[in-house]
Design a protein around this nucleic acid. Structure first.
Length: 189
DNA sequence: ATGAAGATGAAT
DNA sequence: TTCATCTTCATC
């Protein structure tokens, strides 16, 4: 169902351009997924970014070329999915924080152990569990299976806000969401 | 070698 | 608000 596929060039731009452009796009993994409704932008100049203090084994994918996944383990038990952006070495990425489930809902419910649509993918850890994404997908290319990304057809109403769970970084409007969506991890002000 | 913090989520 | 759960990275 991904209409027009998203290719690597899409990600070879400023992370602050890519992030809002991802709202409304379709993300599938093995045919399971939905519409991206919430993301956050991270740049290596940002103290909250994993890449801020230079390359490490964990963040290596962030320093690689755009159009690849950066998956990391959070709090020892959750996986979080990012899309690497900008030129190789720029170490910028967009954290995918929430999607609206549209495909493979039965599989998502099985993996998550809950039925409520709103609890399936409303959060970075939740959506990885629902789609079956793990560290095995770190550094995987986004432009070919099992990933499938589709462009949005119309520009949605995008809400802008500060990021979730970030206390040390400068307060900047680097969180983007589909305004009014019921599938956000947290509401926008 | 050691420890503190962490881009979270679920339960209380 | 608490806690589960454990990797990562900085520091000693």
């Amino acid at each position: 169902m991904p209409s027009v596929p998203i290719h690597s060039d899409f990600f070879a731009r400023s992370v602050h351009k890519v992030a809002p452009d991802l709202i409304g796009a379709r993300l599938l993994f093995h045919g399971v997924g939905g519409i991206i409704v919430e993301v956050e932008a991270y740049h290596h100049t940002d103290p909250a970014a994993h890449s801020f203090r230079g390359p490490t084994p964990r963040n290596a994918a962030m320093f690689g070329p755009p159009g690849f996944a950066y998956v990391y383990r959070s709090y020892g038990l959750h996986w979080c999915l990012n899309f690497v952006c900008e030129r190789e070495g720029s170490a910028a990425a967009v954290l995918i924080r929430a999607i609206e489930p549209t495909e493979g809902i039965a599989a998502m419910r099985r993996r998550r152990g809950v039925a409520d649509l709103r609890l399936l993918c409303s959060g970075p850890g939740r959506l990885c569990q629902a789609l079956g994404i793990t560290g095995a997908q770190n550094a995987a290319p986004l432009n070919r299976p099992p990933f499938a990304l589709g462009r949005r057809d119309a520009t949605p109403d995008i809400a802008i806000g500060v990021r979730i769970g970030i206390t040390r970084a400068v307060e900047q409007p680097w969180r983007y969401g589909l305004r009014g969506s019921r599938y956000l991890s947290k509401p926008f002000p």
